[in-house]
Structure formats: structure tokens, C-alpha cells
Design a protein around this nucleic acid. Sequence first.
DNA 1: GCCAACGTTGGC
DNA 2: GCCAACGTTGGC
Length: 150
Amino acid sequence: MTKWLVKTEESVYSIDRFQSDKKTVWEGVRNYQARNYLRAMQKGDEVLVYHSNSDPTAIVGLAQVRLTAFADPSQFDPKSEFFDPKASKEAPRWFCPEFGFVKKFKRPLSLEHLKGQSDLKGMVLLQRGSRLSVQPVTDKEFTLILKLAE
DNA sequence: GCCAACGTTGGC
DNA sequence: GCCAACGTTGGC
């Protein structure tokens, strides 16, 4: 099974909020590469949750795919900030899975800390200019991250 | 708030 | 299909 990482701005949707919601539909992703990854997610896949634009920016917890991706309802809603006039119910452009909350890490792993791990040099998150908000994570990276976090 | 990096749009 | 202009992301 593939492992993943998703970004969220703490001020927009935090790990604490996710913890109290217990599950969440990961809507609003509007980037094709990220969308393709969302669609590739399988039920049960494990997903690292990362706080971007936060202090500190860090991997803060773990989620699991509950439902594979379906048409993101926000693309059809003219009142939504994620509304896409080019999308239709017949031909949706954007998709979202549903995640279940698994845990909040005892120790959030800051970007700075992650950069110091030589075994994580290849991580998509750590590549220069990497902005992708949904990323695959290798098994090796995933195992190490869990070890560091717990 | 700045700005580098990258993605998207649209004229041609 | 190219590419300039513009928009967004996200670290700092």
C-alpha cells in the first residue's frame, strides 16, 4: 500500500480540528498532479498530515483513507471558494477522498528537523520549490517518520 | 510582507 | 504548441 503526505494550513484546517471531527473530506485540492494522487489513494492507505504556513511547519499526525476519491462537491457550489465553472456533474474535474483521524504525533516533526535527517533527503516535501499539496511517501521514509514522531 | 518556484491561462 | 503574463504556494 502506498503511503502519502497531505498539506493543510493550520489556520484553515488543523490536526486538532481533525481530531475532534474524527473524519474529514479532503476537498478543495485544485492542482492536477495532486488530484491524480488523491484518486490513486486506496482505502486503508496511511497519510501523514503536514501543517504548512504554520509555526513551526511540521508533520503533525497520521490519517487513513476511509473512502476512495469521489467528485469534490465544492466544485459545483457557486458559493464555495473552490467553485469551478468549468466543472460539471457529468464531467467533474476535482476529486476528494475521505480521511479518518488516526493520531496526533506526540512530537511534531518540524521541517527543520526533517531536513536534518539524511535518510529523508529524497522526500518530495524536502525538495527545493516543492509545493505539491498531496505527495507519495516511500515506505522507508514513512517508517522513519513514525519512529521519530513516537 | 517578500519573493522564489512553479502552475495555469490565453494570445498568437 | 510556444511562451509571456499572471496567480498561487509556502518558507522565511
